[in-house]
Design a protein around this nucleic acid. Structure first.
Length: 777
DNA sequence: TGAGAAACTTAGCACCAGGATT
DNA sequence: AATCCTGGTGCTAAGTTTCTCA
């Protein structure tokens, strides 16, 4: 594990300016996401999120859609030659050298982290099938792996990539078409027309199985080939051991009090009481919805005749205290005891942690069945506190390869709800969410699996493709701002907001969910028109995270929003004629496969690419990492990725301030000493009354400089800490930033990749590691 | 065409191991 | 050795998109 503490961002900030500046943004100069344009305070219940300083984003702001179009945001001022094969920013060394250098840096040295490779993946020794990953360049393509390989190939220009593409060219001769597009033409569009495809079209998890078993099975090879060509078939063989159920409840026998009297509870009743008792010190425990929901569900288990009737008379403290004791006991365990426990857990997990997909050993993501508990919804969720009952094998549907051994049901005498063999889906098991019966919980492969990697790559390829269409899309919606067709006009304005503010699509929500909105579901009270052309957005988005942002928009957009809201009452939708289906249907007309969320990926990745390539200089490693973190921060702000301020934040800042003060006092003292030393005078006495050792002016100058740099580092650390206290950097890194941008940048600038990506993220992005250093998003 | 189901991605937070500091 | 602090990871809630059916 590497130490990231030392990598704390040390970028410059101009906090006051950042807080007060109003970013001018007129209609002709607007190709940056507005998320980073306005001084912005996003301070939900938890935090204040500062918008970046002008200087940090002005390169994004300065692009001119009309004069310099067709290029992606932030890149428009760059010479065309900077893009494509002979990028002018590239390192002077040739690609091979860079690649070799990268390998040296990442695999060698003192780091214990190496780039994950398919070859490092553990395999079943007795498995005679091809064990290497389909995408592994060393793999001799079998008919099947060649097919998969074709799906994995991307449009990168590296030598290794082109070498990899060879089999694909043989396969379909479709080499120049971006992956997403390839999928589009061979997949979605054809599957609807192909009569054979209809046979394997799934109706529901169960009907799909029947289809495959019935028709597709009979049509065997031909049908399978068709499926594969269509990209519907996700695997050929799938072997796994099912899911790991939580251990049964162990009663503790500690009695809670009712009206001050100990109460006897059955294990089942005690289990639920304990779930509530251990949450005593959380915010949930003081929320009425939570306690009401808990009590209602608990009462059902207690039965009407039970002595416990009213929540107010319940005292769960004895159980809570028992819980604290247990926690303490666990804490007091010796290192060896903890280690033994851990090893036991690992041993138990091992059976369920792996699946074999087409003969390749892949990690399973969430193989543990969710244990029972009280539902912890986010925000003001109407169901918070409800009992999430225990999931039994009879609730669980298993998906496994035909002919593969069916996982043994963990409870004797019980059986799985169903066993299916659906190779058009990637889930290994699912059950219905006990809180919301119509929702399902799926067990998928881990993010490091090639199946997930493949779809990840397709996602970024689609976002890259948007780069080629974005100009037309912007021209298109700008034209429709003044459309007389209200539906058209609403689509145009909504698309503009999604593009510029990186808003989410905003599906309709039920009454039994937290009241949050996205673009299509914005309500009139979420938008305030501030003349002449500013809009203030204030709403709770996904996870009830507050989005608060004031932006200057194109005048027609401002007028349109004003018009949409006119005469409407609180609670009514701004975009009354719009929903995500209509919006996405329209987007698909503009670019195949385009949906609202692609804009978020596009804007995030293009922002990272632009900042990294514009701002990275020939600097120290630490400084280069700082550039990366600053870019990462920009993206997190654009996407409104927030986190709660840690409980200890204030005390940490106070401590840092105290330390800085101490160091400053030390420095001042040394400066006095220096003056004395220069004059040849004795240095006098220290605080303890001891005579100070005489030092030469040179030594003192060195000491002062050392203290000074420590002060500077601490001040920067503190600023960074303060700045990032509400910004979550991880979410964008994991979900929105094309890892190839990062890998290419690391190669070009000799930054070890593990300084940016943790071990887990490295494993997730294994598919991106061999990217050419010249790669640009 | 719209509703609802199914499948998958995106999200923040709790917890914990392990390094740094006292 | 005890405590603090941090980043990494697992967990699971909450989204989006796609598919199916009436």
């Amino acid at each position: 594990m590497f130490n990231c503490a030392a990598l704390q961002a040390t970028h410059e900030v101009c906090e006051e300016e950042a807080m007060s500046a109003v970013f001018m943004f007129d209609g002709d100069d607007d190709d940056a996401p507005l998320g980073c344009q306005e001084s912005n305070t996003v301070d939900g219940d938890k935090s204040k999120l500062k918008r970046p300083h002008v200087a940090e984003v002005d390169h994004l702001m300065s692009d001119d859609a009309d004069s310099d179009d067709g290029k992606p945001i932030g890149l428009r001022k760059k010479a065309a030659s900077e893009r494509g094969g002979s990028a002018s920013y590239e390192d002077s060394e040739d690609n091979k050298t860079l690649a070799a250098r990268f390998l040296r840096v990442t695999r060698g040295g003192t780091s214990s982290v190496s780039i994950p490779s398919s070859k490092d993946k553990p395999v079943l020794p007795n498995n005679s099938n091809a064990i290497k990953r389909p995408c592994d360049s060393n793999n001799q393509p079998t008919s099947q792996s060649a097919l998969k390989k074709a799906k994995c190939s991307d449009g990168t220009s590296s030598a290794s990539a082109s070498a990899k593409r060879e089999p694909r060219a043989k396969d379909n001769g479709n080499d120049n078409i971006p992956l997403a597009q390839t999928r589009q033409t061979t997949g979605e569009s054809s599957k609807r027309k192909d009569p054979l495809a209809k046979n394997i079209e799934k109706k529901s998890p169960s009907s799909s199985r029947d289809n495959i078993k019935g028709k597709a099975k009979k049509n065997s090879q031909l049908s399978k080939t068709t499926e594969a060509c269509q990209g519907r078939k996700k695997w050929s063989t799938l072997v796994h051991n099912g899911v790991l159920s939580p251990p049964p409840y162990k009663p503790h026998g500690v009695q809670m009090l009712y009206n001050g009297q100990p109460v006897t509870l059955t294990p089942e009743q005690e289990e639920v009481a304990t779930m509530f008792a251990v949450m005593k010190d959380t915010e949930y425990a003081s929320k009425e919805t939570f306690t009401n929901n808990f009590f209602n569900d608990w009462r059902n288990i207690l039965g009407t005749k039970h002595v416990v009737k009213k929540f107010q008379h319940c005292d769960f403290t004895p159980i809570y205290e028992w819980h604290l004791q247990e926690k303490e006991k666990k804490k007091q365990m010796t290192t060896e005891e903890k280690k033994a426990l851990r090893e036991e857990r690992v041993k138990q997990d091992d059976k369920f942690m792996w699946a074999f997909v087409d003969g390749v050993k892949e990690k399973v993501g969430n193989f543990r069945v969710e244990p029972p508990g009280l539902f912890r919804g986010r925000g003001e969720h109407p169901k918070m506190g409800r009992l999430k009952r225990r999931i039994r094998p009879s609730d669980i549907t298993i998906n496994i390869g035909e002919g593969a051994p069916v996982p043994v049901c963990p409870i004797h005498g019980e059986s799985w709800k169903e066993v299916k063999h659906d190779n058009t889906v990637t889930w290994l098991a699912f059950w219905n969410d006990p809180i919301n019966q119509k929702e399902c919980k799926y067990v998928f492969l881990a993010a490091s699996s090639s199946l997930k990697g493949q779809s990840d790559k397709e996602k970024y390829e689609k976002a890259r493709k948007l780069k080629d269409h974005i100009h037309n899309i912007r021209v298109n919606y700008t034209k429709d701002f003044r459309s007389k067709d209200q539906a058209k006009k609403q689509i145009a304005v909504a698309t503009y907001l999604i593009d510029k503010l990186a808003l989410r699509a905003g599906n309709e929500k039920d009454d039994d969910e937290a009241d949050t909105v996205g673009c299509c579901t914005l309500k009139v009270e979420n938008v305030t028109c501030l003349p002449p052309n500013r809009l203030q957005f204030d709403f709770l988005g996904k996870d009830s995270i507050r989005y608060l942002n004031t932006v200057e928009v194109k005048l027609p957009v401002y007028q349109a929003i004003k018009e949409f809201c006119a005469g409407k009452h609180k609670g009514e939708a701004v975009f009354g004629k719009l929903d995500t289906n209509k919006l996405n249907a329209h987007l698909k007309d503009l670019m195949p496969g385009l949906t609202a969320k692609v804009f978020r990926t596009y804007n995030a990745s293009i922002t990272l690419d632009t900042i990294l390539n514009k701002e990275t200089e020939d600097a120290t490693l630490l400084e280069k990492i700082t550039v990366y973190q600053r870019a990462n921060k920009e993206v997190a702000i654009i996407c409104n990725h927030q986190r709660a301020v840690s409980k200890s934040h204030d005390s940490q800042i106070t401590k840092l301030n105290e330390k800085i003060d101490e160091l400053k006092a030390l420095r001042d003292g040394l400066e006095v000493d220096l003056e004395k030393a220069k004059k040849g005078k004795p240095l006098g006495y220290d605080e303890d009354g001891k005579r100070k050792r005489n030092l030469t002016p040179e030594v003192l100058v060195n000491k002062i400089s050392s203290v000074e740099s420590r002060i500077q580092k601490m001040e920067i650390d503190m600023k960074t800490k303060e700045e990032l206290k509400t910004v979550a950097l991880g979410t964008s890194k994991i979900n929105y930033l094309d890892p190839r941008i990062t890998v290419a940048w690391c190669k070009t600038h000799e930054v070890p990749i593990e300084k940016i990506f943790s071990k887990t993220i490295l494993a997730k992005f294994g598919w991106a590691m061999d990217v050419d250093p010249d790669f640009r998003f």
